[in-house]
Design a protein around this nucleic acid. Structure first.
Length: 877
RNA sequence: GGGGUGUUAGCUCAGCUGGUUCAGAGCACCUGCCUUACAAGCAGGGGGUCACUGGUUCGAAUCCAGUACGCCCCA
């Protein structure tokens, strides 16, 4: 035989991927005769490289899309990339720095030129990597969130929302990243648990005639912000501070006088019960300040250094300033003590810098109105989240949704289409021309020129383009009634990570209802995070993330795909272990060898058909498993679906069916058996194909001559068929018999090659007759006959109430055998007692359903028969 | 602090409407096999008080309450 004993994925994968591409199997066009099935890819960052998370996510999407394609649906998987403004800009800035260029020395246009060059050169590698995985995306439809049409959609949406009053400009407390020098959305801020210090500072109470100065002690974690203090707040019910109501205090070092205000917001027990109010640098203080109509003093520059308003430590970084002021306070005797306490530090997801709550002028998008339909759609299961446990999280987020800060102080992205007039007012427009027209109209100044207008410097948050993705990839903004969007939208399934449920998924749902009055997708499958075997997140610094392409190289794409899916139920983190991928590869090999076996048989047409029972059984078994597989798919239990296929292939098809029909060495096989077997293998390949596309396509073609477009990838998915439950159950018993015989061999050290005899004492001989050949073959038997009486001097066992005897030619260990039987007898007796107890319970008999009672009766009868049989065997020993 | 969610074999997890799918799977482990499809394999096997406590029920891994521990989200 010339076929390799090991499956070799390398050339196979390339060959079939190219072949699929050439024949256009991935490409989709609207087809009114077919049901559409659509997935839009969560666009990876254009700067990204494939990591394990992508592997899992895209394998699942590919499984779904391939199955749909085989089901005869018009399957369309739209790929693309995201411009990822912060991440990409950071990479370009770093690249320029290496060349000795500072971003601040460049104009916006110069910088963008570099950025585009960089994107053209390094961007989109990830899409090429996805091809190695076997992703059957419609590459003709590849989109990029910053390409012209998609940017135009973003601008159009911005203008539209602005005109609807949904977008506004305002001073707000934002999360400021002093390193990236941009505002961040709440979702881009990562809280980190740390130990922080609480400084207790003395504020002098403004002289009220007392000879000695008196103080109030204020606790703060940020002493460097005291120069921005505008008040000290205490709880009006706090007895300790009653004497200070209506008084003022002096800021330490600065000496500035500020009022003591009263508010029940202050927790009496926390710190000293006295709170310094610094509206410019803390969200809660800001709200307190608003309430009490206090001024705000912002003492920080964009880069986190102190400005002139601070008066002290001007120009120093906030952390340096903190060290210095603590020292000075100490020297001035105003620092009472320092306490350690556990606190949460807000950091930037991108740069890791400590976030500065800061007042700044930003653009916001109102969320509350848009959140309504988006919330309802999920709560009433119009859009289903898998697993549904995420519904609660989704609801609590949507019910407490806050306005979305959409502006970013960056250059890489869609520039905010607001144009400022010389008088400081502004207009919002989709183009320069329109802006000028509007500006002239609104200012009444027809002399205004384009040069008089200044466009906002900021760009929009990346998510402001990705929330439109399911619509914009089909040009639903440019041309709202085009045939693609009408056909493919709403899409079917979205596969993504739970950490972007709010960033992205929720906003896409909002955009769907806002701009098309329709949900963007019907199902959201939430994957878990891929972690290492110890449960740690995969990260570059830990070096615990394998390179996916190396894995593919080593184990084959099919092996990796199967390995990823073996243990990743929806919503659960995947603890990745290379063992899983190894298992996937071994599975490939198993399938390969099954194919080799079948391919190697000579057919002799003159032979009769000896395998009717085996064929009938596997046919039923396949259909039984198939119903299960379909059920798993319908509930998005992808791992379970794969495991069902795995067991069907390995246990049922290979270990059992093929062993049953396998002719003796170098003997030919009959025509009927081989035909059935090939048909079975084809069906098995079909259900396997979504998971392991390459090896299945390879075998499909090696098995038979195929016509030009007769590919597995576009073959028809099996249909659910009726199956014979009785033959499956009977075979289970038969395989138990075989297993018991093998067990006897094992425990008695009887080699496989030595034939044994078997005597069967059963109630219904005819029920066993069709299976005798199978038992003989799988257990390697010589004599095989039915008997009426128990056989002396034999090892016996019982399966489903029937007795089986293997004569042992006298070398039977009577004591051991007696002990074994005695043990089994005791167990069965105990079992009978428990069943009897149940059945004699009046309330059980009257309360339980008929089927359950019947079952208990059957258990009782079986147990009694078994006890009887064991006792006889014991007697005959 | 509020909310969510989980705890089942050494590990990762199934277990759906309470009862034959009820204590399961895969991996790991142990024993024996180089049996001409496959040692990346074959055959067999040992592992669990279903976190704890109580309740509901004829019957609880499954429903309810509390406790402990873990994780997630929000403040």
């Amino acid at each position: 035989m010339s076929i390799s004993t090991k499956y070799n994925p390398k050339e196979v994968e390339k060959k079939w991927y190219d072949s699929w591409m050439q024949r256009g199997f991935f490409h989709s066009e609207p087809n009114p005769n077919k049901e559409p099935y659509t997935i839009v890819i969560p666009p990876p960052n254009v700067t990204g490289v494939l990591h394990m998370g992508h592997m899992l996510n895209n394998t699942i999407q590919d499984v779904l899309i391939r199955r749909a394609r085989m089901q005869g649906k018009e399957a369309c998987w739209v790929p693309g990339t995201d411009h990822a403004s912060i991440a990409t800009e950071a990479k370009v800035v770093a690249m320029l720095k290496e060349k000795g260029i500072n971003k601040s020395d460049l104009t916006r246009e110069e910088f963008l030129k570099y950025a585009w060059e960089w994107k053209e050169k390094y961007g989109g590698i990830i899409l090429e990597q996805l091809k190695k995985l076997g992703a059957s995306c419609d590459w003709d439809r590849t989109r990029f969130t910053m390409e012209d049409d998609l940017s135009a959609a973003v601008i159009e949406v911005f203008v539209d929302l602005y005109r609807k009053g949904q977008i506004y400009r305002g001073v707000r407390m934002v999360n400021w990243d002093p390193q990236g020098q941009t505002a961040l959305s709440d979702e881009e801020v990562i809280p980190k648990d740390t130990m922080a210090k609480m400084y207790h500072l003395n504020y002098e109470v403004v002289a009220d005639g007392a000879a000695e100065p008196t103080y109030i002690t204020v606790a703060t974690s940020r002493p460097e912000t005291i120069m921005a203090d505008v008040a000290v707040a205490v709880n009006p019910n706090d007895e300790r501070y009653k004497h200070l109501h209506g008084k003022s205090v002096r800021i330490p070092l600065l000496g500035k006088e500020i009022p003591v205000i009263l508010d029940e917001y202050v927790t009496i027990e926390f710190g000293t019960g006295a709170l310094k109010v610094t509206p410019a640098h803390d969200l809660n203080d800001y709200e307190l300040g608003q309430k009490h109509k206090l001024p705000t003093i912002d003492i920080l520059n964009n880069d986190g250094t102190l400005n002139e308003l601070a008066q002290l430590y001007v120009g120093q970084d906030r952390f340096a300033a903190r060290r210095n002021i603590v020292k000075d306070l100490q020297e001035a005797g105003l620092l009472v003590k320092i306490e350690e306490y556990a606190s949460v530090l807000q950091t930037s997801e991108r740069t890791g810098a400590v976030i500065e709550p800061r007042l700044s002028m930003q653009w916001f998008c109102k969320m509350d109105k848009m959140a309504q339909p988006a919330l309802e759609a999920v709560m009433n299961d119009e859009i289903r989240l898998h697993p549904p446990k995420f519904k609660n999280m989704y609801r609590s987020w949507m019910e407490n949704v806050r306005d979305w800060c959409v502006s970013r102080q960056l250059w890489w992205g869609q520039r905010i289409p607001a144009y400022y007039l010389p008088d400081g007012s502004f207009v919002v427009a989709t183009s320069d021309e329109e802006a000028l027209k509007l500006a002239r109209k609104e200012s009444g100044n027809e002399q205004l020129q384009m040069e008089d207008l200044r466009q906002d410097e900021d760009v929009l948050d990346t998510w402001f383009s990705s929330w439109l993705w399911p619509i914009s990839v089909f040009d639903g903004f440019k041309d709202p009634d085009n045939k693609d969007i009408l056909y493919y939208y709403p899409t079917n399934d979205l596969v993504t990570a739970p950490e972007i449920l709010f960033f992205w998924v929720a906003r896409m749902i909002m955009a769907g209802f806002e701009f098309r009055n329709e949900m963007p997708f019907k199902n959201v499958y939430l994957t878990g995070i891929v972690r290492d075997a110890q449960g740690r997140k995969m990260s570059k610094s830990l070096g615990n993330s394998p390179d996916p392409l190396d894995l593919i190289d080593q184990y084959g794409a099919d092996g990796v795909r199967a390995g990823m899916l073996f243990s990743s139920p929806a919503g659960n983190d995947l603890l990745f272990d290379e063992k899983l991928v190894e298992q996937g590869r071994n599975f490939s090999n198993k399938i390969w060898n099954a194919f080799r076996l079948i391919k190697g048989w000579e057919v002799d047409e003159s032979l009769s058909f000896p395998n009717e029972t085996a064929v009938k059984w596997f046919d039923s078994r396949f259909n039984e498993a198939f119903v299960q597989i379909e059920d798993h798919f319908s509930k998005f239990r992808i791992s379970d679906a794969l495991l069902s296929v795995y067991k069907l292939v390995w246990d049922d098809f290979c270990s059992n069916y093929l062993e049953m029909i396998k002719p003796a060495y170098q003997q030919p096989i009959d025509k009927q058996t081989i035909d059935h077997t090939i048909a079975f293998l084809e069906k098995v390949l079909k259900v396997l194909h979504p998971f392991m596309p390459f090896i299945t396509e390879e075998i499909w073609h090696d098995l038979k001559e195929r016509k030009d477009k007769e590919y597995l990838i576009v073959s028809a998915w099996p249909k659910k068929e009726k199956f014979d439950k009785a033959i499956i159950e009977k075979m289970e018993n038969v395989l138990n018999v075989v297993g018991s015989i093998r067990n006897v061999r094992n425990s008695k050290n009887i080699p496989n090659s030595k034939q044994l005899d078997l005597y069967i004492k059963v109630m219904k001989q005819e029920s066993y007759e069709p299976f005798l050949g199978i038992i003989r073959k799988l257990a390697n038997l010589n004599e095989l006959q039915f008997v009426e009486e128990s056989i002396d001097g034999a090892i016996s066992f019982i399966v489903a109430g029937d007795e089986f005897f293997i004569p042992m030619e006298g070398n039977i260990d009577v004591e051991a055998e007696r002990e074994r039987l005695q043990k089994e007898l005791e167990y069965t007796k105990g079992f009978l007692i428990s069943v009897d107890k149940k059945l004699s319970n009046e309330r059980f008999v009257s309360g339980a359903p008929e089927a359950v009672i019947a079952n208990e009766r059957k258990k009782k009868a079986d147990a009694e028969a078994k006890i009887n049989a064991i006792e006889q065997s014991l007697a005959s020993l």
